[in-house]
Simulated assay, not measured.
Amino acid sequence: MRFYIKALWDEESGVFYSESDIMGLHIEAETVEEFQAIMKDLAPVMIMENHVSKKDFSKKSILDMIPSIFFTPPSLGNAAA
């Protein structure tokens, strides 16, 4: 299981927000550090709630169910974090 999370800067709102293929995950934060802290707390929960079924537990090995999350921080030119 592979997922991505990208932090993008919203100039108008003054926050970093997430783009992701993890269903239900939406992050907004004023700093990249805050974004990453929220991401570390919420991403695994959203994956377990929205991407893993009870059927998966009976049919897949535990190693196949450990997700890989690829984080792309904002480019330095997009915001002064």
Results as ranks from 00 to 15, higher is better:
Leu63Thr: 09
Gly24Gln: 08
Ser18Phe: 02
Glu30Thr: 08
Pro74Thr: 01
Met39Pro: 04
Met48Ile: 01
Glu33His: 09
Asp56Leu: 06
Lys6Thr: 04
Phe16Asp: 06
Val15Tyr: 13
Ala80Lys: 00
Ile47Glu: 07
Glu34Arg: 09
Asp56Tyr: 11
Ala7Trp: 08
Ser75Gln: 05
Glu28Cys: 06
Glu28Ser: 12
Gly77Gln: 05
Ile62Asp: 03
Phe35Gly: 10
Phe3Trp: 11
Tyr17Asn: 07
Pro67Thr: 09
Met1Glu: 12
Ser68Phe: 02
Ile38Lys: 06
Asn50Tyr: 14
Ile66Thr: 03
Asp21Ile: 05
Ala43Arg: 06
Ala79Cys: 05
Ser18Asn: 07
Met23Glu: 11
Trp9Asp: 15
Ser53Ala: 06
Ala43His: 01
Pro73Ser: 03
Gly14Ala: 07
Tyr17Met: 04
Asp56Met: 13
Met1Thr: 06
Met23Ala: 15
Tyr17Thr: 05
Glu28Arg: 15
Asp10Val: 01
Phe71Leu: 02
Asp21Lys: 04
Gly77Ser: 05
Ile47Trp: 14
Met46Lys: 10
Gly77His: 03
Ser61Ala: 11
Phe57Ile: 05
Ala43Pro: 00
Pro74Cys: 01
Arg2Ser: 09
Ile5Phe: 13
Ile38Asp: 01
Met46Val: 05
Ser20Cys: 04
Pro73Met: 00
Asp21Glu: 10
Ser75Thr: 02
Leu42Glu: 11
Ile62Trp: 09
Trp9His: 08
Gly24Asn: 06
Ser18Leu: 08
Ala37Cys: 05
Met65Gly: 07
Ser13Asn: 15
Leu25Cys: 07
Ala7Asp: 06
Asn50Gln: 10
Pro74His: 01
Lys59Pro: 01
Lys54Met: 11
Leu8Tyr: 15
Ile27Ser: 00
Ile66Trp: 08
Lys60Pro: 04
Ser18Trp: 13
Lys60Thr: 14
Glu49Asp: 15
Asp64Leu: 08
Ser61Met: 08
Leu42His: 03
Phe3Leu: 02
Lys6Arg: 15
Ile66Gly: 02
Ala43Asn: 02
Gln36Glu: 09
Ser18Cys: 05
Glu19Ser: 15
Ser61Trp: 05
Lys59Thr: 15
Val52Leu: 11
Ala29Tyr: 10
Phe3Val: 02
Val15Cys: 13
Pro67Ser: 13
Leu8Trp: 14
Glu30His: 10
